[in-house]
């Protein structure tokens, strides 16, 4: 049984090494990065992080990303809840086709949509707003949210609904008071996934923004090409993009495995 630990341990080391290397670089100054090859910082410095936290053009990127990700999570979860309920409980005209059509959008390559999105959101005056990115990310997050929630909801026996209606609950009251608490973990997992896919996406977010809503990941790429490769700051910015994800995982760690199976284990 002891040997069983070797495989996950090796795998975790493999996962953490590149991240450690980024952390290591973010704590060095540029001369040290380029001149000395060392496994840990010889001359520990937090200057790179200081640069980011003192420059609005840097830290506004984090705020922008947070704003559009939050808008997207709220839209996705609140719209997907009733839709997922409908898919899990009722059959209606064209339900299977609709479900498949929704899923096919999850499979649509963002590269296909980049340019048309730019034109669409420019023409409705949403270009360079947080709402534009949030709506664009709904393209793949909404179907995913419906899919996961439908999986979780199908696991709730229908008797619960029927009993509640017999007890005289109205539909909205039943939905909020009884049904939502029953799938609370499912909602948490769905929100987590919407957060995740909106947070990691760059192509659409970059195409749809120029200044006011520019995400942190796009600001990073710009700085790499423009200011002659400031490795330390780049590494620090990268480290900071990992932090929100790590925090969010901690909250859903008990349900994450079931969530990845889309609530269908």
């Amino acid at each position: 049984m002891k040997t069983k630990w070797i495989v996950p341990t090796l795998y975790i080391i493999f996962l953490l090494l590149p991240i450690y290397w980024l952390l290591n670089m973010s704590l060095k100054n540029n001369t040290e990065i380029l001149s000395v090859f060392s496994l840990w910082p010889q001359d520990l410095t937090l200057d790179n992080y200081r640069v980011i936290f003192n420059d609005p053009s840097w830290y506004s990127g984090y705020i922008n990303s947070m704003i559009y990700v939050s808008i997207n999570v709220v839209i996705s979860v609140s719209c997907a809840l009733p839709a997922a309920y409908a898919f899990s409980r009722y059959s209606f005209l064209g339900d299977k086709h609709l479900f498949f059509w929704l899923l096919s959008n999850r499979m649509a390559p963002p590269a296909v949509f980049a340019l048309p999105f730019f034109q669409l959101y420019s023409s409705v005056g949403l270009f360079d707003t947080h709402l534009a990115v949030a709506l664009a990310h709904c393209l793949f997050n909404l179907p995913l949210a419906v899919w996961i929630l439908e999986g979780f909801m199908s696991g709730i026996p229908k008797e619960i609904d029927e009993t509640a209606f017999i007890d005289g609950y109205s539909f909205p009251k039943f939905f909020v008071k009884i049904f939502i608490p029953n799938i609370a973990s499912g909602i948490g997992v769905t929100a987590f996934f919407c957060f995740m896919f909106s947070w990691v996406e760059l192509l659409l977010a970059r195409t749809l923004t120029s200044v006011n809503a520019k995400p942190i990941s796009a600001i990073m790429t710009r700085t790499v090409s423009a200011s002659g490769l400031d490795w330390g700051v780049l590494a620090a910015a990268g480290m900071l993009t990992i932090v929100p994800g790590a925090l969010v995982i901690w909250f859903v760690r008990n349900h994450i495995a079931k969530g990845f199976a889309l609530g269908r284990v």
């Binding site: 795998y11 975790i12 996962l15 953490l16 991240i19 995740m196 947070w199 990691v200 996406e201 760059l202 942190i216 990941s217 990073m220 790429t221 990268g238 993009t241 990992i242 929100p244 994800g245 790590a246 969010v248 995982i249 760690r253 994450i256």
Partner: peptide, 12 residues
Amino acid sequence: TMALPLLIPWNV
């Protein structure tokens, strides 16, 4: 730790 890489922005 295993879920960590999944939450890093793709360009990072």
